[in-house]
């Protein structure tokens, strides 16, 4: 049950940044209309973040990760279920990791 001061500060910073997006976006963008360009940039951000998170980790993780990624995509396309995607993808990664 330890709580480091630096970790608490980082959590509070994350909370402030997140709530600034949730509440600040509503307050700001109901007063000022975002330009179509800004709207377009913001719409591409989620995909950009997920690709940026996944790609270096796949490159670093090698064969087990690539196998897991392929199984995750397949399971997700087939079932549209987050549970199936996470579970089957992680199981495939684990299996290839053990076999190597």
């Amino acid at each position: 049950m330890s709580l480091s001061l630096a970790t608490l500060a980082a959590i509070v910073a994350m909370m402030a940044a997140t709530y600034a997006c949730r509440a600040g976006g509503y307050l700001l963008f109901t007063r000022i209309r975002p330009t179509p360009f800004l709207r377009s940039v913001l719409a591409y951000i989620p995909g950009g973040i997920f690709m940026s998170y996944v790609t270096p980790a796949l490159v670093h993780g090698g064969l087990p990760s690539w196998a897991g990624a392929a199984v995750t995509v397949g399971a997700m396309v087939a079932t549209r279920s987050l549970v199936a995607g996470i579970f089957l993808g992680t199981a495939a990664t684990w299996a290839v990791w053990l076999l190597r």
């Binding site: 997006c21 509503y26 709207r39």
Partner: peptide, 27 residues
């Protein structure tokens, strides 16, 4: 460890920018 409040806060801000566009829809 120790954690960086600047790095964590900035990462949270960029990842959550999409939320800024969601609020106005429910205006």
């Amino acid at each position: 460890h120790p954690a960086s409040a600047l790095a964590a806060g900035f990462a949270a801000f960029v990842v959550n920018l999409r939320l800024a566009l969601m609020g106005p829809v429910l205006a």
